[in-house]
Structures are given as C-alpha cells and as structure tokens.
Computed example of a mutant assay.
Amino acid sequence: MSMWEVYCVKYADRNQRTRADSFIFDDNHDAPHAMDYFMWLLKSEDQVILVDTGYDTQEAAARGRPIRLDPVEALAPFGITPQDVTQIIVTHLHYDHAGGLHLFPNATLHLQAAEMAYATGPCMCHDTLQKPFTANHICEAIKRLYSGKVIFHDGEAQVADGVTVHCIGGHSRGLQSVRVLTQAGWMVLASDAAHFYENVFARKPFPIVVDLQNMLDGFETLHRLASSPSLIIPGHDPLVREYFPNTLAPHIHRLDTGPTRTIPS
C-alpha cells in the first residue's frame, strides 16, 4: 500500500478571537484563542492530492478576513502550478475550505453527496446556516459537476491507494475527514471535524454546528481511524505548527514524519 508525505500549508490566521468562538461550553470564554487556516498537500511518488483550497484575496476582502498568502502562492514552494493539481478532496464547502476551487481548473473534486445537497438545499434558507458558505464557491462546484469533474462519495470511500475519506458531518452536513497512510501510521486530517486539539481530546464541540450528535460521535470516529491520537490533525489549531517540523518554507509543516514532541491528549 502506498505511503504518503503529508504537508500542512498555512495561508491565513485570525488572532482577534476568544474561546467562546471555539467551544460551546467553556468557563474561560473571554480568553483569547487564535485560529490558523490551512490547506493540506499529499504526495506519493508522482501523485499529488490537494485537500481543500483555502480562499483568495477577493473573498478575504468581502469577509474582512485577510489572508497572508494566496493559495497558489502558498503552494509555490512545492514547485506546483495550479494546472498541475488534478485531484482535490473538498472536506466541505465552507468558504475557507472551498474558496479557491476556481484557482485549480484541471482538478476533479472529491465531495460527499450530502455536502452538495446541504449547500444547495432548503437548509440554506436559514441565514445562520448559510453564513459559512459563499454562493460563487457553490456555483463553481456545480460548474465542475457539469463538466464531469466531481466524484461523489457516500460515507467512506477510497480516493487513492492509502487515502480514504470518511463522512463525519456535525459542523457541516457532508463534512469528510481524510485518512492517509504515512510512515508514522494512519494519519487523519480531521479538517473541521475538530478545529482544535481541545475539541477532540476534551470532547468540546465547536459552536458552528448543524448536528451536535454527529459532531460528538465524530470525535470518537477520529480516534478510531488514527493509529494514535497524536496522528489526529485538527483543522485550525496553531499548535500543529509547534508539534510538527517546519520544511520548505515558514508556512509549511511536514506531518507524515510524526510530531517532534508529545502531544497531550
């Protein structure tokens, strides 16, 4: 079975947040709690799979959430051009994960059918549920569908040898996490099934949620899928950059070699 290199690519951050923005139940809700924004790149010999795309400067301006690097610029240290990317696993269609789909015109998207149904269905009549989505990003996914470049998955599926996706839901109806075989063991890119280590390790749910039970059950699923808790990679935690080695550029950290120190769980 193929072994994969896994890289975490930071393209943005938000420091003006509190713990109330990260946890539904928290006694210290006013304390600062920063968030990083990541994409992930999987490499195995001549295969490359991008997991999520980040969002671009136009979306950053529209939402008042600046980015440090355009997604294309963030991937440049790998020697990858947008045209080189032919496979993208879209963990879910929120703006910060699917806001750069248009930047990679040759890519086929791997998406849970439940996520497309959710993002285009009656749930979007509710402003609160609609807020993390941007219509242009959803339209891009639909255009990709009509050009024959979307592969839908329903639950668990294999994307490539050593790479599987697993529908967890909770944060978004069709949120999927990615399980990858690495030299350190089976690694799970949780994406927003766990924004922070504290979400999954302390079983503390994130406030943006469509199904709380699915989110809580998802924490158990992440533990089941990973070879060890230290190989669960949360979707937005700045601590990832402290636990895993820096490589290629200041904003890129390599995950597949395992953490450089013990991760409290």
Rank of each mutant, 00 (worst) to 15 (best):
T57N: 15
C8F: 07
T262N: 08
T91D: 06
L175E: 07
Y95R: 14
H126V: 13
R14Y: 09
P122M: 13
V165I: 04
S44W: 12
D161P: 04
A113N: 08
D56G: 12
L212Q: 04
L255P: 01
F201Y: 10
I208R: 06
A62F: 05
T257Y: 11
E140I: 08
Q58V: 12
R254E: 12
C123W: 14
A157W: 03
Y197G: 04
V163F: 05
C125N: 14
A114G: 05
A34F: 14
K149Q: 13
Q58K: 07
L239E: 06
C125P: 14
D56H: 14
I138Q: 09
A193H: 01
A98M: 04
A60I: 01
I208H: 03
L255W: 01
P250L: 12
T108K: 13
N136L: 15
P71D: 02
T91H: 05
L103R: 09
T128L: 07
A113P: 02
L145G: 08
Y37S: 15
A190G: 00
I89Q: 08
I88Q: 11
R68S: 11
R203K: 13
S230H: 11
I233C: 02
I89L: 06
N136H: 12
V159M: 02
W40T: 14
L216S: 01
I151Q: 11
L69V: 10
D237G: 02
G258W: 09
L41W: 14
H253P: 08
A160D: 03
E59R: 09
H166A: 01
E5F: 15
E156K: 15
V163R: 06
P250V: 07
A193T: 00
L50V: 04
D52V: 13
V165G: 00
H126Q: 07
G174I: 01
F196M: 15
G155C: 03
N214C: 10
V180T: 09
I80P: 12
W186G: 13
V9K: 04
F133I: 01
S44T: 08
V180S: 03
R203E: 07
P238F: 02
T18E: 07
D84S: 12
G162Q: 10
W4M: 03
S177Q: 04
G79K: 10
S147A: 15
D26I: 08
W186Q: 08
P229Q: 05
I208C: 08
L69E: 09
S172E: 08
L101H: 06
P259Q: 02
K204G: 05
F38G: 01
E220K: 13
P245N: 09
R68F: 12
A249V: 05
F23D: 02
M187T: 03
A31R: 14
D96Y: 11
M35I: 11
M116S: 10
S265L: 15
G99M: 15
R173N: 14
S2G: 14
T18R: 07
S172I: 01
P207R: 00
T53I: 10
